[in-house]
């Protein structure tokens, strides 16, 4: 959701708008310091999120400008963390702005010594073909006892506590529709 500027400057009430422009302060000349916030949050969009690390579920506010995250800090209204964050939560800006993020599909052929970049349009059909080939080759409509089992034991999946609930549910649907039984995630290691 978009939150108002007051969610960040929660205690600021009326003066916040004035303060952000740097006006309205009587400063002695020698001791005058810029009143603008170091980060230009005034023009930023603000969305709430939940920290992606541990299971406490702390609320955070994300400030973004021109499609870039410029600031992430604790959501003061969130009843669990009340604006606070641990060192990992406080570092999320560097997850959103990180040159090491994966930005292209990469493929490593059998016995190759290097990655090669692929487009999604190239990669998705390649993966689909491999899934189908393995599934077709390993699918069991009945097991050795003669019972109907309609499954493949030739494909396994792990994942994931890093997915959203809706994605988890969709993923289990995808896997079970394909007949996978080897399904696991972080809860069992």
């Amino acid at each position: 959701m978009l939150v108002t500027r007051r969610d960040f400057l929660k205690t600021s009430a009326v003066t916040a708008g004035v303060a952000i422009t740097g006006m309205g302060f009587a400063l002695a000349p020698v001791e005058a310091h810029a009143a603008e916030l170091r980060k230009d949050l005034g023009e930023a969009t603000q969305t709430t999120t939940i920290c992606p690390y541990c299971g406490v579920g702390c609320g955070l506010v994300v400030h973004a400008s021109d499609g870039k995250v410029i600031n992430i800090e604790g959501d003061s209204e969130h009843p669990i963390n009340q604006g606070t964050a641990c060192s990992k939560g406080a570092s999320l800006y560097q997850m959103a702005n990180n040159d090491n993020r994966l930005t292209t599909v990469r493929y490593r052929a059998a016995n190759a010594t290097e990655w090669q970049d692929l487009s999604w349009d190239e990669a998705i059909p390649m993966i689909a073909q491999r899934v189908k080939a393995t599934r077709d080759a390993t699918f069991e409509e009945t097991n050795t006892a003669g019972n109907t089992v309609n499954r493949t034991l030739g494909i396994g999946s792990l994942g994931s506590a890093a997915l959203d609930n809706e994605e988890c549910w969709l993923y289990q649907k995808f896997l079970r529709a394909m007949g996978l039984v080897y399904i696991g995630h972080q809860a069992r290691n």
């Binding site: 969305t47 999120t49 939940i50 920290c51 992606p52 299971g55 406490v56 579920g57 994300v62 995250v69 992430i72 669990i80 999320l92 997850m95 959103a96 993020r101 994966l102 930005t103 292209t104 599909v105 990469r106 493929y107 490593r108 052929a109 059998a110 016995n111 190759a112 010594t113 990655w115 692929l118 990669a123 390649m126 993966i127 491999r130 959203d164 609930n165 809706e166 994605e167």
Partner: peptide
């Protein structure tokens, strides 16, 4: 690497602040 025949696909996905949905905390 030359001895490993496994084909590997590495797919880049969105981080938590780049998509919408719910997650469930420990409570």
């Amino acid at each position: 690497a030359a001895d490993v025949a496994t084909e590997v696909f590495e797919l880049p996905c969105a981080a938590s602040v780049e998509k919408e949905g719910s997650i469930t905390n420990s409570g």
